[in-house]
């Protein structure tokens, strides 16, 4: 990776970063491309009992059992109406591999760290939990998502 040392006196480094952006409804989001293993079409999932509504179930990914998280529902939007046009982004989160159901993948963005603006202090818990920053891009706003807490927490289970 090309390390670009910023000269503007703020004394921080801005590495080049590649992100995958995708759409959920009218919103655009992106995640670090390094976490993405593959992108595949929608296949019907087997529902899991006793699971939060944003967990769509599990599918067979070449012999592995892959949980599918409806990212729209997870982020607090209207849940995605799954159909053939939807895609599953297969992401590595820690030791686990998880499928993220989104409407469509739109682009691969190359940005530098200093293009990421901090999330404004909004009341929404989901925003605080998942949004790592905002990226202005050609007049649009893209939210950078952190995937660490996409899967249901243990606290939720205890509730």
């Amino acid at each position: 990776m090309n390390q670009v040392i910023s000269q503007n006196g703020q004394n921080h480094t801005g590495g080049m970063k590649e992100l995958i952006s995708f759409r959920i409804g009218a919103q655009e989001f992106c995640v670090d491309i390094m976490a993405i293993r593959e992108i595949r079409g929608w296949t019907a999932a087997t529902a899991l009992p006793q699971s939060p509504s944003f967990v769509r179930g599990v599918i067979n990914l070449r012999g592995a059992v892959l949980p599918i998280v409806d990212l729209a529902s997870r982020l607090g939007f209207e849940s995605t109406e799954a159909n053939d046009r939807n895609v599953i982004i297969v992401a590595q989160i820690g030791e686990q591999v998880v499928g993220l159901l989104v409407d469509a993948v739109s682009d691969i963005l190359t940005i530098t760290d200093d293009m990421i603006q901090p999330t404004p202090d909004v009341a929404s818990e989901t925003a605080k939990t998942f949004v790592r920053g905002l990226i202005p891009m050609e007049g649009r706003m893209i939210s950078l998502i952190g995937l660490e807490r996409v899967l249901p927490d243990m606290e939720l289970e205890a509730a």
């Binding site: 999932a45 087997t46 006793q50």
Partner: peptide, 27 residues
């Protein structure tokens, strides 16, 4: 037998998963 915990977590009432001839996951 396929583990459910490897990528997800334990689900009450479900011991594990398997993959059927049609390629779908069954619990």
């Amino acid at each position: 037998i396929k583990s459910l915990e490897a990528n997800y977590r334990q689900v009450p009432g479900v011991a594990a998963a398997t993959i059927l001839g049609d390629g779908r996951v069954a619990l």
